[in-house]
Amino acid sequence: MKGRDLCDILESNDPLIGLQAVGALHRLAERVEWISVDLARRQGFTWEQIGDALGMSRQAARVKHGK
């Protein structure tokens, strides 16, 4: 995936390239989520605020990201 232009990936007829791109996007989204939740908690956000922002319940957010 590294070094490939996004337009090349989107225009590819190779489903493996598309699936690899999806996997990379999932990993990136997970990383951004964890970093953002950690920052929000350090700044005093509640689990309810975090859950609302993520589109999940406060319980689900706490279970996923709580220590």
Rank of each mutant, 00 (worst) to 15 (best):
W34V: 05
L10M: 06
W47E: 06
I17N: 00
L25P: 01
E11S: 10
V63Q: 14
I35V: 13
L19V: 08
S57W: 03
G44L: 11
N13L: 12
D38P: 01
L54C: 07
Q43Y: 08
G18A: 06
H65D: 04
L10Y: 04
R31H: 12
V37Q: 15
R62M: 05
V63E: 13
I17A: 02
I17V: 15
R42L: 10
A61E: 11
R41G: 09
R62I: 00
H26M: 04
Q43I: 02
Q59I: 01
V63A: 09
W34F: 06
R4W: 08
M1W: 09
L10H: 00
R58K: 13
E48Q: 14
L16C: 04
K2V: 06
L25W: 06
G18T: 09
K64F: 00
S36T: 15
L6E: 02
N13C: 08
G55T: 05
K67S: 09
D14F: 05
T46Y: 11
D52I: 00
A29C: 01
R62S: 07
M1K: 05
Q49C: 11
F45E: 15
L54V: 03
P15Q: 10
E48L: 05
E48F: 01
A53E: 15
I17D: 00
W34A: 14
G55A: 03
L39S: 09
I50V: 14
E30Y: 08
I35L: 14
I50E: 15
I9Q: 01
V32E: 13
Q49K: 15
L10D: 00
R31T: 12
G55D: 11
N13S: 10
A24T: 15
R62G: 02
S36W: 10
G3K: 04
V32F: 08
R41M: 13
T46W: 11
A40M: 14
A21L: 04
D38K: 12
L19S: 05
S12G: 03
A21H: 07
R31W: 06
L25T: 07
D8K: 04
I35Y: 11
T46F: 12
G23T: 14
P15G: 04
R27Q: 12
H65F: 14
L39Y: 09
H65C: 03
G18Q: 07
G51P: 14
L54M: 13
D8Q: 04
V63S: 11
L54P: 14
E33R: 15
I50K: 13
V32M: 08
E11N: 04
L6G: 01
H65M: 01
A53I: 00
G51A: 07
S57T: 15
L39K: 10
L16D: 11
A61T: 08
D5N: 03
Q59L: 00
L28W: 07
F45V: 01
R42P: 02
A53V: 00
E48S: 12
G3A: 02
D8C: 04
I35D: 15
K2Y: 05
